[in-house]
């Protein structure tokens, strides 16, 4: 036995497609990315909000993620200010989640018969989301390829039942599978395609532009104003009475309010990249975003999707 897998993937997108069809076959709803700037796949309401309450849930999706401070003008072999995460969230966490996860590695060409796969303790915490969980980072031949977490608390609420969350850093994982040393050289589509595109063909220029924007271009005055606005708007939306006079229904605007929380979080990240937040202020900003996340979680728990099911004896 010498081949790594019967049919190794040849491009970045093929790895994504294989993950999509694998998790679809496991019964997950394949969602699309959330249409806002977020720092990680966890911020997608399909994870943050849907991990609350008792309603069963199974979803998988790609989420473009932005970490403004990680911009390196497209020069660093694996650091990017815009990258992709693959996110799987299943509630309640199934007993065979580890096996399902290992199946996904096989699907993208990482055969545990040939590689050293390890579950190494790594507890996850998101101070901005008021969330934490226990789990591991998963090592493949000494390389961290995913994060595996059993959510214990989100937005200050205990998770009952517990969701299992998997996060794959797609670029790093794909570079390893494809044997690529610099992310910009990674084939994005099939290298045999008539118009073969590398990751760099698509993202080198944007990495340059956004690096300049994040570090020097963005107006800090505007960012500060928008942060205040988002914070106020989030609170304002949650202050509405649940009864909607127009439709006559009970409508709590948890998701629109949470959008403002996501915005505030991203604006904070940009302000951080611009270097205008001092060490002491940092904690205060994080606390303000967390307060919003908690309020949104509180509100979501009062909605149909986030409520605890009636316990029937």
């Amino acid at each position: 036995m010498t081949a790594t897998a019967p049919n190794p993937p040849r491009s970045f997108q093929e790895i994504i497609l294989r993950l999509q069809s694998y998790w679809a076959a496991q019964g997950c709803a394949i969602l699309q990315p959330y249409d806002m700037e977020v720092g990680a796949g966890t911020f997608h309401p399909a994870t943050t909000l849907r991990s609350l309450g008792t309603k069963p849930w199974a979803a998988a999706y790609v989420q473009p993620s932005r970490r403004p401070t990680d911009g390196r003008y497209g020069e660093n072999p694996n650091r990017l200010q815009h990258y992709y995460q693959y996110q799987v969230i299943i509630k309640p966490s199934p007993p065979n989640l580890q096996d399902l996860y290992l199946g996904s590695l096989r699907a993208i060409g990482l055969d545990p018969a040939l590689h050293d796969i390890r579950f190494v303790e790594d507890d996850w915490e998101s101070p901005t989301l008021g969330a934490w969980g226990l789990g591991w980072e998963i090592w493949c031949d000494g390389m961290e390829v995913s994060q595996f977490t059993y959510f214990q608390q989100v937005g200050g609420h205990d998770c009952r039942p517990v969701s299992g969350e998997l996060t794959y850093g797609l670029e790093r994982l794909a570079m390893y599978v494809l044997g690529i040393d610099h992310v910009m050289n990674m084939p994005f589509n099939d290298p045999q395609a008539p118009i073969a595109l590398t990751y760099g063909d698509i993202f080198r220029q944007t990495e340059e532009e956004y690096s300049r924007h994040n570090f020097d271009g963005a107006s800090t005055e505007m960012l500060l104003r928008h942060f205040e606005d988002a914070e106020a708007e989030c609170q304002r939306l949650l202050d509405f009475a649940p009864e909607d006079p127009k439709s006559g229904k009970r409508i709590i605007m948890a998701h629109p309010a949470y959008d403002q929380c996501i915005k505030a979080s991203h604006l904070f990240n940009l302000l951080d990249a611009r270097g205008v937040i001092s060490v002491t202020e940092r904690q205060a900003y994080i606390g303000r975003v967390r307060a919003l996340a908690k309020k949104c979680a509180d509100a979501f728990r009062l909605t149909e999707a986030g409520r605890d099911a009636e316990v029937t004896a």
């Binding site: 790594t4 018969a113 040939l114 590689h115 050293d116 796969i117 031949d141 390389m143």
Partner: peptide
Amino acid sequence: NTETADHGATILKGNQKVLSA
């Protein structure tokens, strides 16, 4: 944590790569 058909060659190569980075 495992024995492989290639006596760890793939594993070692991967680790070497991570170490270089």
